[in-house]
Design a protein around this nucleic acid. Structure first.
Lengths: 218, 218
DNA sequence: AAATAAACTAAACAAACGTTTAATTTAAAC
DNA sequence: GTTTAAATTAAACGTTTGTTTAGTTTATTT
């Protein structure tokens, strides 16, 4: 019996297996139908638990969303730094960073989608500290890397560093949100070939883009 | 008294001023709080009309969303082609295309956001033909432009053409969806400086990116 | 001016919503 | 084995949801 210990709301929240099972179902349904488009009865039915368990375990539907986001972002330790500390050249390092980021957001795409949609709402009062912290951490690592490359004369100094990550993640998500259109364009069919497409073609495109931008921008 | 004539569901839908006023309010609220997060009573209250008018005019809340999307996409004639037909060089043409696309989606960002969020839902049954048609039209124009540049030896042949537009639009939308984070990073404050930022800094970044990609990708 | 059609309204509808209650079963502690 | 706590349940709570009804006002047509 292994529980998932989670720092949350300045206190520690332990998630047992049943809670995690509920969150998995909630993640799927929120990503498919939106937060407001998903009822707690749907979640409880699909997770095979009583409706009251959601309030019992998480307090409310909204607090369950908080728990989900923090649960998914909790293990976002900066593996970037280990990539940047190896002895590859700058071009190879860019490729590794992009491949890592794309694989990561693809794996957590459902929660990212929920955050993207709910985050900008005035009405929603979600606790996205962990998400913002991770975003900031990632940015600082990228910033240091690019500035180092600029100092060594490998990277162009004309690049807008804060907008590099939006280009990486934005390309992925715009593809993902419009996958029905783009998979038709690429003649892809099932979910497996989507994974493959992301890991090969899409990743390669973003790698090319960022390499060209960092090296040749003017 | 000028009405807006709209082709819709294989028939012609005429929108009078009151209907357009309702759609403007609905667009704002849908973009802010989502489709499911917005009630018809909210819309009717803010638009200063009776609740029943929404069913009376559009049939249902969902059909109103259809009407909104088609209303906003209706005037999306391909101005791209006029840009591409002038006598600028390739580099300048890229700049003009990017500036045009960014300005366009920024202007219609609210409806784009709604489409992005509702489009991927299995549960939602929205009619996005106009949107898809416009997407396809735009892609074909871009494709022809890039292939011409490749033939003339100006553009790299290593570029994945279908993924160029996702990079342009994705960069914009990832910035827009996370604007709270990025405006803090850029130390922007009000809505005006956001418009300015999009028209100058963000547009320039995407121009740099696409130019570098098309010319130097390998 | 009378008749017809369109625009608009307040009220009511059933269904679905998130949450709470009170009772019961299961597990842990003593 | 008894007591205490935690987990689980079915039912009910009061709101809010999108939509419809039936009636009234305003505009257009004859």
């Amino acid at each position: 019996m292994f529980n998932f210990v989670l720092e949350f709301n300045n206190s520690i929240m332990e998630l047992n297996e049943k809670q995690m099972q509920i969150l998995e179902v909630a993640e799927k349904l929120f990503a498919e139908n939106g937060f407001d488009g998903t009822s707690v009865r749907q979640i409880s039915k699909e997770a095979d638990v009583n409706v009251a368990m959601i309030s019992y375990y998480f307090g409310s539907k909204e607090k369950m969303l908080d728990a989900l986001i923090n649960y998914r972002m909790a293990d976002f330790k900066i593996q970037l730094e280990s990539i940047l500390s190896n002895d590859k050249n700058y071009s190879e390092k860019i490729e590794e960073i992009v491949a890592f980021v794309v694989a990561r957001i693809h794996k957590n795409r459902r929660t990212h989608k929920i955050v993207n949609f709910e985050y900008s709402k005035d009405s929603r009062n979600i606790n996205i500290e962990k998400y913002l912290q991770q975003k900031d951490d990632n940015y600082r690592v990228i910033e240091a890397f690019v500035k180092k490359g600029q100092k060594e004369g490998v990277f162009s100094k004309e690049v807008n560093i804060p907008l590099i990550v939006p280009t990486i993640m934005g390309t992925y998500f715009h593809f993902y949100y419009n996958k029905r259109f783009y998979t038709a364009l690429h003649k892809l069919t099932d979910e497996i070939s989507l994974d493959e497409f992301v890991n090969t073609t899409l990743t390669k495109h973003i790698q090319q883009t960022i390499k060209a931008l960092l090296i040749y921008a003017n």
